[in-house]
Amino acid sequence: MSRRNDDASVPQNGQIPSRAGVGLKPEHYRTILETAPDIGFFEVHAENYMGAGGPPHRYLTEIRNLYPLSLHGVGLSIGADRPLDRDHLNRLKGLIERYRPGLFSEHLAWSTHDTAYFDDLLPVPYTTESLSRVASHIDEVQEALGQQMLLENPSTYLTFAESTYSEIDFIAEIVKRTGCGLLLDVNNVHVASTNQQWDPLRYIDEYPLASVQEIHLAGYTPETDEKGRPLLIDTHDRPVDDIVWDLYQHTIGRLGPMPTLIEWDANVPPWPELKAEAERAEAIMSAIDRKEQARAIAG
């Protein structure tokens, strides 16, 4: 099935539609170009396209000509105590100019120290000092890129004893100070809520939903800590869990249809399996949409 080519709703300006998209993996480049599947958008990790040339750019250029694209950074280290890497910001700016993504997002996390890059999203203490550091970094990003960025809520495994803000108050204050938008990762809500023993529904209800412009969904790995408590790891290596689908349904009930990304970065499945996850998200959005319409007519 392909209704993309004649679908007038595909925004020519690159705006991300309120549909489901998937993270673009090299394993699927050819299938996507050969079959032109009906998918709302693709998202890429910016760092994978920071070479000067080569096949990654060749494929992304072709796919961008057919679909809206969102850009997701994993290496900016917004939560670090040191100044942002200006070279990295310039590379991001170059990618944005080249591919005109509909959205750009990064994480509430840090991944660099001294000269080392750790390739992991490390947790940030929720203190006034780190709040002003994160806020000034986001100001710098938005100024350098000339556009709003979305900040993603983290998946965390522990907390800092010195934290004086709740995660939600911390994020809400950043939005207030910087005017950034938010990316709500519903899997991260489930992972962090389980690990920290929070109520995930309350997390979503108290999140600054008015600023949310994109949702992420992914799979996690269940483990336990030394006291036998559940410890969920954000692995992106399997289907979205049923509990996360329920939280997603709740979120869409509050937000209405919203750009929703399926992230599957390790043990990448064959294309049909990934696409089926996107279809499940679209089905939830459509059902909520119909319910809204019915309520509007009834009301």
Binding site: D119, D120, Y157, L158, T159, A161, E162, E223, E226, L231
Partner: peptide
Amino acid sequence: GLVGPDGEPSPRRFAVYRNNV
């Protein structure tokens, strides 16, 4: 000061980051 939900230190939780990196 890196703690689990009970406010107690949790080496196992820190080990997740170490292992991920």
